[in-house]
């Protein structure tokens, strides 16, 4: 792919190899944004295809760039849909009796609750938390992906975890009293 300012054609093999390596992490990140495996795979696929199609600017680190592309695509294409779906899927609005669901272990239910709770966070907090916790990025690197100051990442992480705990406690109380 020979485009001005874009990685040259002879680097395509390297790009493919790097993207292949990034794929599992990118998929997890997409999952944290979307909340469902189907949507995550669609988003991840779109992100990789976008990068292959448009190339990567020479002055960026691919790993950071890929996560940024993924996030921007999600903001453009998926957030509106997802927001509508959330109103329907909100567990607090659903008639779920967790204690009756004998097919799932307590651990599975807990993990499901965490996933649902993640979807209750706003995108900014969820992205920051996902990049740092799941991708093991430093605050500095996450700040570069999210294009915000490090202090903002620090603050978002703190609020995200506080909100998650609050949400999980509420959900636990709701389930017990249901």
């Amino acid at each position: 792919m020979a485009v001005n300012g874009i990685r040259a054609d002879n680097e395509d093999n390297k790009l493919h190899a790097e993207l292949l390596e990034l794929l599992p992490g990118l998929r997890r990140y997409a999952y944290s944004l979307c909340g469902t495996a189907d949507d995550a795979d669609d988003l991840c696929q779109s992100a990789v295809e976008r990068i292959l199609e448009k190339g990567v600017p020479e002055d960026v680190v691919l790993a950071k760039w890929a996560f940024r592309v993924c996030r921007n695509l999600w903001i453009d294409q998926y957030r509106a849909t997802r927001t509508r779906e959330l109103a329907v899927e909100n567990p607090l609005l659903q008639d779920i009796n967790i204690s009756d669901d004998s097919r799932r272990t307590e651990n599975e239910i807990q993990l499901q609750q965490v996933n649902l709770a993640m979807q209750e966070l706003n995108e900014e907090q969820r992205s920051a938390l996902s990049l740092v916790t799941l991708q093991s990025m430093s605050y500095k690197d996450a700040a570069e992906v999210l294009e915000v100051p490090v202090g903002t990442v620090m603050s978002r992480i703190s609020r995200a975890r506080a909100n998650l705990m609050k949400y999980l406690n509420t959900q636990s109380t709701f389930a017990q009293g249901h």
Binding site: D12, N13, K14, L15, H16, A17, L19, L20, L23, P24, R27, R28, Y31, S32, A37, D38, A40, D41, D42, C44, Q45, V48, E49, L52, Q110, L111, Q112, V114, N115, M118, L129, S130, T133, L134, L164
Partner: peptide, 30 residues
């Protein structure tokens, strides 16, 4: 908990579309 919850997707097979993209990457990579 967050790591365990969001890593759950690792156990889910890739969608057909993503699987195709992965094959494309594998073919293109040395």
């Amino acid at each position: 908990q967050i790591t365990a919850s969001l890593s759950a997707i690792d156990a889910i097979p890739l969608s057909a579309g993503l699987s195709q993209v992965k094959s494309q990457l594998e073919t293109g990579a040395h």
